[in-house]
Amino acid sequence: MTGREKILGRIREALTVPAPHPGAHDAHGGQAPHTSFKGRPVHVARGWMPPGGDTFEEQVVRFRAASTELKTDFRFVGSRDEAFTELARIRDTEGWKSVATHRAEQPSAAAASLGLPVIHTDEGYDVDALESCDVGISGCDVLVAQTGTVVVTNRSAGGRALSVLPPHHVVVATRDQLVRDLTAAFARVQETYGTGYPSMISFITGPSRTGDIERILVLGAHGPKKLTVLCW
């Protein structure tokens, strides 16, 4: 018998006696939660989660508020040109000398607009060279208003390392990529890829952070110290 058969056999045997549904032990007082679900709990629960905003404007407000709290530099501008001007401004303030990006329309245009040496990760790259880049510019799949999250995959963002190895991660996005909440984000991802998922899907919320020393927030624990989201 294989390990798989053994463990699945043990599970089937264990499950012959049913277990009570959750909530049987709730205290008598207090406000009772909803306990009956028509359909999958995650769908019903959508309305109970932190809100993401009903209109596009509300969603921008939510995304901005979450970004401020999480120290994401969110710049929502009117056009691509304006976005690239913002990018050049950041280049000058931070003194960037080299850029990494990938072969996709918006990110590579953004990188090219900077007039700096560029590495394209999807053409094959040297890890040390990527590590020494000042910034990684990538595309994304979705921006999530509810949480201030950027969803990338290794297909939409130039592989697994580009969005975490350089000290600054810049995401370029268009306004149609902003969705209300995580449920919408997962739906968009499933819609985009069908069953041919990329091997990595990452929900990035804010720059890399740690609170492991006295619960004091420090940015840039291992991943990027800065996360900039440029959206037009």
Partner: peptide, 15 residues
């Protein structure tokens, strides 16, 4: 920030 934390817990428990 949740609209209904207690019910969300119940949904997570059911899942």
């Amino acid at each position: 920030a949740f609209n209904d934390w207690q019910s969300a817990r119940q949904a997570a428990a059911e899942t």
